[in-house]
Design a binder for these strands. Structure first.
Length: 155
DNA sequence: GCCAACGTTGGC
DNA sequence: GCCAACGTTGGC
């Protein structure tokens, strides 16, 4: 099993949006960055776990845990002209963008803020914390995963 | 709202 | 293939 971190702006799509879906399951649509897409398309497997991260908000941080329940499939929002994620270069015959489906396993009672992650020595190599990083899908090492879970339990 | 860092586009 | 211009991300 591999571990990941998936970013979303809560104004656009929050963990509560996911919780409201049937079976707390939804597609992770709208990724429009090749590196992030490649992680999803090529490496994310059913059963993998990911932290749900809220970005561009008052308190950026990790707000819960999701499970990958469906692997790579085409993202149809790319060929929907009314979608904010419309990409005329993607077609049903030749889809450019991928998505996975996720199910919410846990919403934290309180989020683990970015500021707290930054203070932990054992997380200093986390991709999320690298200066200039903007990737919305990043791998998380097993060590980082365990460390972050322990932060959750200590609060 | 600012702005630095990064990704993408397109002319050459 | 280079690189300037532009758009986006995301913390602060």
């Amino acid at each position: 099993m591999k571990f990941w971190l998936m970013k979303s702006e809560p104004d656009t799509y929050s963990i509560d949006s996911l919780m409201e879906k049937p079976n707390q399951t939804d597609h992770w649509e709208g990724v429009r960055n090749y590196q992030a897409r490649n992680f999803m398309r090529d490496q994310m497997k059913k059963g993998d776990r990911a932290f749900f991260y809220h970005s561009s908000c008052k308190t950026p941080g990790i707000v819960g845990i999701v499970e990958i329940v469906k692997e790579n499939h085409p993202d149809p929002s790319a060929w929907d002209p009314s979608s904010r994620y419309f990409d005329p270069k993607s077609t049903p015959a030749n889809p450019r963008w991928s998505m996975v489906s996720v199910r919410c396993l846990e919403k934290f009672k309180t989020s683990i803020p970015l500021t707290q992650l930054k203070t932990h020595f054992s997380l200093k190599n986390m991709i999320l914390l690298r200066p200039g990083n903007r990737l919305s899908i990043t791998p998380v090492t097993q060590q980082e995963w365990k460390t972050i879970l322990s932060l959750k339990e200590n609060r």
